[in-house]
Computed example of a mutant assay.
Amino acid sequence: MIVDRQGRRFRNLRISLTAACNYACTYCVADGKRLVAAEDELSADALARAVAYLIEAAGIERLRITGGEPLVSPRLEPFLQQVAGLGLQDISLTTNGQLLSRKLPALLACGIKRLNVSLDTLDPLAFRRIARGGDLSTVLAGLQDAREAGLNIKLNMVPLRGQNLDQVLPLLDYCLERGFELRFIELMRMGHLARDPQGFQRQFVGLDELLAVIGARYEYQQADAPQDATALRYEIPGRGFFGVIANESVPFCRSCSRLRLSSTGWLHGCLSSSNRHFIGDLLDKPRHQALPALQRLLVRALGDKQELAFSGGVTVMKIIGG
């Protein structure tokens, strides 16, 4: 097992199935252009083999499938079918929900029980302005279908000053009424925002301001969360829960257990680091050759983690998943 001097190790793998996305959200890409799949993205077989090797080499316990938008990838179903048999404690998926109704039968057939759905507003005009793609009513219909199918659902919202701050309470009400858990994600200094500190500060909404907005309507209390959780979790007694991923206000780097794998075979140990480690060439090697080489790369990836707090990174989030 690979452990650093702070006692951190990799438990959670987030794998970007594709960089392609049918949205071009303002906080993710600057120019409004949708990202397309790279020509050198790994096959479903190779990605599944990477997961299997990482389980053995690093002790990965939980898998989150991300993108881009994973539901646009033709590799989704064959990949899910293979990783479902690897003995992971949990497999979940993050999606923007645009194709959720259409892909729901495949997700259920492969044993997916948990979804994180990105949704920044319930206002159709604001939705189009922020996502620069998609259709709100289609996402809401997908959420209803997933709820009726019994999936555990969390919604992810990025509050942005001047764009959707007025949607904090409407989205919270929407989630409480349906048994969803809403996660507010503080804007991250990633990609173009890392190079535009003034633009970042203009839009940033922090933990204290969010809690003040919520506290004006609801009484809440802090709830327990796993030791390596990214979110501060709160309970509104008798109604439900919400969380805040306060990467700027209350950094969680000291307990981070996350490892990311891009669709093109690059390991990222930390979002704040520009370092990356290629494992694509290891996936064609026999296990006895691949695992020692992979463990050496994992030591380096773990060493990339920040000790105290997220400091920003120029990597575009869509490339390595949320």
Rank of each mutant, 00 (worst) to 15 (best):
R9H: 10
A37L: 07
D90Y: 00
L261H: 05
C110D: 08
R239P: 06
T95F: 08
G280P: 01
T66K: 06
R102A: 07
F278S: 12
A149L: 10
Q6Y: 15
I112T: 09
P197K: 02
L271T: 00
V314M: 04
R202F: 00
D123Q: 04
I91L: 08
L42T: 02
N156H: 00
E307N: 04
Q167Y: 11
I236H: 12
L143A: 09
F79G: 04
G111S: 05
V36N: 11
L294N: 03
S101V: 08
A57C: 09
G87H: 06
D45R: 07
I91D: 13
I185A: 02
A131G: 03
H277R: 01
K318S: 12
D208I: 03
L267G: 04
L104H: 04
A20Y: 06
N12Y: 15
F278R: 14
F242L: 10
A290D: 03
L294Q: 03
D145W: 00
M190Q: 05
G215C: 11
L283S: 08
F310V: 05
L42N: 09
Q222P: 09
V139K: 05
K318W: 07
V168A: 10
L261R: 06
V139H: 04
A194D: 13
L282Y: 09
Q295R: 15
T26I: 14
L259T: 07
V168S: 09
K103T: 10
D284T: 13
R217D: 10
N164F: 08
R128F: 06
Y174F: 15
Q306R: 14
T26F: 01
A212E: 14
T94R: 09
R202A: 15
S311N: 02
I245S: 02
T95D: 02
D145M: 03
A84K: 14
Q163A: 14
F204V: 07
G142R: 04
P237M: 07
P251L: 05
L93Y: 01
G199W: 01
D284E: 15
Q167D: 13
N12H: 11
Q98H: 14
A52S: 14
I214S: 06
A225P: 06
A290W: 02
T264A: 12
G134Q: 01
S311K: 12
G206E: 01
